[in-house]
Design a protein around this nucleic acid. Structure first.
Length: 420
RNA sequence: GUGGGCGUAGCUCAGUUGGCUAGAGCGCCAGGUUGUGGUCCUGGAGGUCGGGGGUUCGAGACCCCUCGUCCACCCCA
């Protein structure tokens, strides 16, 4: 019989990585909660239509959607991201604005896996609905910046841009369409294909043969309305005031069609792989409306958990937390003493483990060593007769005999001494 | 979806132009140590060589297909 393994693009996250993931999400939760964001848990699948609003020209929608028909005949899709779900939730519940939420969890995209890219991938992120103020844009960006700092990352660069309002964006897209069409012959075959679908995305091409054409392309700046232009200027002023360094990248258009005005992206310069973007986001004024809600401005970002952790590895920061127990109980009399001792210790808030199956003392000591415990409590026939326990420091090898009832206090004291 | 590399023990890998019952290190189990781990020594368990088909007297090695994985393109976190 053939054993099963995980589906392509998915994997088991085992300890200690799994504990690192939890710690990662905990740090993000702290940062978000400190800024007034509340936790939201949207469903992992929704009506396909929710995600079609991401834009008909986006690959996420056209070729990467995990969609299927459920037993009730509904068109369902596993969420490829969470922004659309949050907006749908906003329309459904109509919370008072500003509505500030944060989230963490898996998304699904049917792509070919490679480094830093999986079919099931985790993101953490925030969204704010109902606020147009450029100071919010700065707050949101600064929040991501603060999070990276808390992880210990230093080699993260922030690029920002403004795509203008819907009208600006459209006029710019038209201008790009005209420009690139005029220079079509000089573009790569891939970019020519892209041009037909979304001229903005041609700016994103990394191909060498496209660079000279891209360099001469019209700039978004010239198409921004006075309002959008002033909004962007205020975002930049606010960021500068916060001490968040950034560069303006006029070619930063990002992959999802719903972006308006402010867009931003975080890139790790410590990563050498193909995917160095570890987070990004922007404004999506108009998305709520498209989902059937009232005209509502929105902004948010999502950070890729995998990629950010890869960046952490590259910088040698944010290691996995220690998951070792404090005490390991060795019982050579059958195991019932270990059962009771573990219960007492755990009840007192001291993490404890023990061996099973009546293994030899040597084997149990080996297990104790491997457990990473600081202390071994040893109960053999001698100890049972005298009502005592041997307490051994696994680092120094020193051991003392304590009274059976003193286990918690003696262990607490020894741990305190070794803790420093 | 396209292209390339790689699939041999739990892990990392070696296996000469195809040739005995497929190896190493680490890990695991047991013993050396009749109550005590981390070092050392000895022994042991564990592999349908990703799967299927083919060539051959003979295939882990060669051919075809397939699956998986890694990397890159596309795109994105």
């Amino acid at each position: 019989m053939t054993a099963f393994s995980t589906s392509p693009g998915t994997r088991d996250i085992l300890a200690p990585d799994s504990e690192r993931w939890r710690a990662f999400q905990n740090v993000f939760a702290e940062v978000a909660l400190a800024s007034g964001y509340r936790y939201i848990i949207p469903p992992m699948f929704e009506d396909l239509g929710v995600f079609l609003r991401l834009g008909e020209a986006t690959d996420v929608v056209t070729k990467e959607m995990y969609d299927f028909e459920d037993k009730g005949g509904r068109r369902i899709a596993l969420r490829p991201e969470q922004t659309a779900s949050v907006c749908r939730a906003f329309v459904e519940h109509r919370p008072v604005t500003p509505w500030k939420v944060w989230y963490a969890g898996p998304n699904f995209r049917y792509e070919k896996p490679q480094q830093g890219r999986y079919r099931q991938f985790d993101q953490v992120g925030v969204e704010v609905l109902g606020v147009d103020d450029p100071h919010l844009d700065a707050e949101v960006i600064a929040l991501a910046d603060e999070f990276y700092r808390r992880l210990g990352l230093r080699k993260v660069e922030l690029a920002i841009n403004s795509l203008g309002d819907a009208g600006d964006r459209q006029r710019y897209a038209d201008a790009l369409q005209a420009y690139f069409t005029a220079h079509k012959a000089s573009l790569s075959a891939e970019s020519q294909t892209t041009l037909a679908k979304n001229p903005l995305r041609v700016l994103d091409s990394k191909r060498k043969e496209d660079q000279s054409v891209i360099a001469g392309a019209p700039k978004i700046e010239e198409f921004l309305s006075p309002a959008a232009s002033e909004h962007f200027a205020e975002v930049k002023r606010s960021l500068t005031g916060l001490g968040v360094s950034f560069t303006v990248n006029e070619r930063l258009v990002r992959g999802l069609d719903y972006y308006r005005r402010t867009t931003f992206e975080f890139v790790s310069t410590a990563l050498t792989a193909a995917h160095t973007a570890i987070g990004g986001g922007g404004r999506y004024d108009g998305l709520v409306e498209e989902l059937g809600g009232p005209a509502t401005p929105g902004i948010g970002f999502a950070l890729g958990l995998d990629r950010t952790l890869l960046a952490c590895d590259a910088e040698g920061v944010f290691p996995a937390p220690n998951g070792d127990v404090s005490v390991f109980v060795v019982d050579t009399t059958g195991g019932s003493h270990a059962t009771r001792l573990c219960r007492v210790l755990r009840g007192a808030g001291i993490s404890a483990d023990r061996a099973f199956d009546g293994r030899s003392m040597k084997a149990q000591m080996k297990a104790a060593d491997r457990s990473g415990a600081k202390i071994a409590l040893i109960v053999g026939t001698n100890e049972v007769e005298s009502g005592s326990i041997v307490m051994r420091s696994l680092s120094s090898g020193e051991q003392t005999t304590i009274a059976h009832g003193d286990a918690v206090s003696a262990v607490t004291q020894l741990l305190a001494n070794q803790g420093s």
